[in-house]
């Protein structure tokens, strides 16, 4: 029972990060119908920048801030310079361009930083706190929950309470009509990619210290897990992405804890297959409600 509680908390903590990363995928998918396969590597670039800034200044938080800023900038630049050129092409073109970006960026990161794992420090203790002698959660888990919660609330406020959020949603749902209403859809797209990359960078900063460390491919498995989470949620539902992230986090935690950690990648793929067979539209797909 103690183990179950611990694995549940652990799973929710990882799941919160998958949820954030899945949310970033959903942000872009909703606006462009493209799955941003480059999102993992963008987060890794932000993490490397954070690593360099932290190393130079000695402050984790300056590095964290650098990751946020670089996420915004990278997302905007990638949309403006690369993705805009395949915007009106079939979705497969965008996927291939994104995959090309992954290979290129991982190569460049390897040239600059080397292809070995680098220790990436966590800002809080990763030793579990015990309650009545039962190991429950680490301070780092609390940091993760808090950060993801703040991130989600900020996004919710942005999208539902502000004029910019309204414009972004309109541009994503109905670009043609939005342009007739004076919305600069291109600018909203750039902003969407910037936000998504920011969220991705935060997710990367949160999860990399819990794994093997910093490496050009550090986000590859996280991407698969988060993509599964987004698919579980229906790919275009923000709430679905959050629920999907938590579900994937729990499943992986239980599989890793009760079976063995080597089977977790298999478990993600199995979950993806089951969801695609049972509910290809995902659990929270908005597309069925849209086709009236």
């Amino acid at each position: 029972m103690d183990r179950f509680v611990f694995l549940t908390v652990y799973g929710l903590s990882r799941g919160a990060i998958y949820a954030a990363f899945a949310l970033a995928l959903v942000l872009i998918f909703r606006a462009t119908r493209v799955v941003n396969f480059a999102q993992g590597v963008l987060a890794v670039v932000s993490a490397y920048l954070a690593y360099s800034v932290s190393g130079a200044t000695g402050s984790y938080w300056l590095g964290f801030g650098a990751a946020l800023v670089s996420g915004l900038v990278l997302g905007a630049v990638v949309e403006r310079v690369v993705m805009r050129r395949v915007e009106h092409a079939p979705p497969l073109n965008a996927v291939i361009v994104a995959l090309g970006l992954v290979l290129l960026t991982q190569g460049i990161l390897g040239m600059i930083y080397g292809n070995q794992y680098r220790a990436f420090p966590a800002p809080f203790s990763t030793v579990a706190m015990t309650v009545h002698g039962v190991p429950l959660m680490t301070r780092y888990d609390l940091f993760v929950f808090g950060t993801v919660l703040v991130l989600m609330l900020a996004l919710a406020v942005l999208f539902t309470r502000t004029a910019t959020g309204l414009r972004m949603r309109a541009a994503a749902f109905a670009p043609q009509v939005s342009r007739l209403l004076g919305v600069n859809v291109g600018r909203m797209l750039t902003l969407g990619w910037a936000l998504a990359a920011l969220v991705g960078a935060v997710a990367g900063m949160l999860i990399i210290p819990t794994g093997l460390g910093l490496h050009p491919t550090a986000m590859d498995l996280v991407f698969v897990s988060s993509f599964t989470a987004a698919v579980v949620g229906g790919l275009d539902s923000p709430i679905g992405a959050v629920v999907g992230g938590l579900v994937v986090g729990l499943v992986l935690s239980y599989v890793g804890g009760y079976l063995n950690s080597a089977s977790t990648p298999l478990a993600v793929l199995a979950l993806l297959v089951v969801v695609l067979l049972a509910r290809p539209g995902g659990l929270f797909s908005a597309s069925t409600a849209r086709r009236v």
Binding site: R169, A170, A174, Q176, V177, L180, R290
Partner: peptide, 10 residues
């Protein structure tokens, strides 16, 4: 526009 252009999701 024709078909009215109401944004369904909003």
């Amino acid at each position: 526009p024709e078909g009215r252009g109401v944004i369904d999701e909003l």
